[in-house]
């Protein structure tokens, strides 16, 4: 569905090299990798904010050739560093509908439904009238998730979206995302640091190391291949049916 072919991104002191991966529809793909492995660079390429060689296609449409507005209905992006703009959480979430609005920017019934759904699902409804500048880091991440849900793009790309969340909030966040993938047939691509948490929610796993694609495949293959132990220098054990990875 999202076909990445021979993707190479050259940056000053870093190159993301020759990434080829066909990301399956209606799945949650987790991109794992140490700091500086190229996770964020890959995401920048998907969101067209860096120059790259190779192609990224969605249903055979090259993302490069689409207008911003066309792309906005296909890919939504939640970057790693979220700004705190000086307007309300409700406004922020509503802006998720921007790709569908006419010139006057009026919200129709469907828009309002989507906004309410997103606010309810993420719990952001509880602080929707607060300014984004006034909410906690975790609340802000959930608000941006709500915006992405509102945007209703086929592919949701999220860069370290749970960095500021406590473990229970992180689970809540990932459950919302997973549910969105299942019930609304979305495709989610998400970068994470915590390997154990990542494997609890992932359908597919992509592992980057020094700008190269080290592994791409199902979660089961990722676990059985031993690639995670090798790259992250961790040991694997099963606890209550959960793959747990601990630092050696």
């Amino acid at each position: 569905m999202l076909e990445i072919t021979d993707l190479t991104v050259r940056r000053k002191s870093f190159t993301l090299e020759n990434i080829t991966a066909n990301i399956k529809p209606h799945s949650l793909t987790v991109i794992l990798g140490k700091n500086g492995s190229g996770k964020s660079t890959l995401i920048s390429a998907i969101d067209q904010s860096v120059n790259y060689e190779g192609t990224i296609k969605y249903l055979n449409k090259d993302l490069k050739t689409l207008t911003e507005r066309e792309r906005a209905t296909i890919v939504s992006i939640m970057p790693q560093h979220l700004k705190s703009p000086p307007f309300s959480v409700n406004d922020l979430v509503s802006f998720g509908r921007n790709p569908y609005l006419d010139f006057a920017g009026r919200l129709n019934k469907l828009d309002v439904e989507r906004i309410n759904y997103a606010l309810e699902t993420t719990g952001a409804v509880n602080y929707k009238n607060k300014l984004v500048t006034q909410v906690s880091g975790g609340e802000k991440q959930l608000a941006y998730l709500a915006m992405a849900l509102c945007q209703d793009a086929r592919i949701m790309v999220l860069d370290e979206p749970t960095a500021f969340l406590d473990v229970d909030k992180e689970n809540e966040f990932l459950n919302v995302l997973k549910n969105e993938v299942k019930t609304h047939k979305k495709t989610a691509i998400i970068t994470m640091h915590n390997v154990t948490q990542a494997l609890r929610y992932a359908d597919s796993v992509m592992i980057l190391n020094n700008g190269k694609l080290e592994f791409f495949g199902s979660k089961e293959n990722a676990v059985s291949s031993g690639v995670i132990e090798r790259i992250f220098n961790v040991t694997h054990s099963m606890v209550n049916g959960i793959n747990v990875y601990l630092a050696k």
Binding site: E68, S76, H81, K83
Partner: peptide
């Protein structure tokens, strides 16, 4: 005004929301 407001969320987010930044 709407697009300018959206740009306060950063160029990346604004672009992904369909704004011609």
């Amino acid at each position: 005004s709407k697009d300018l407001t959206i740009i306060r969320m950063g160029d990346t987010v604004a672009g992904s929301l369909g704004v011609r930044v």
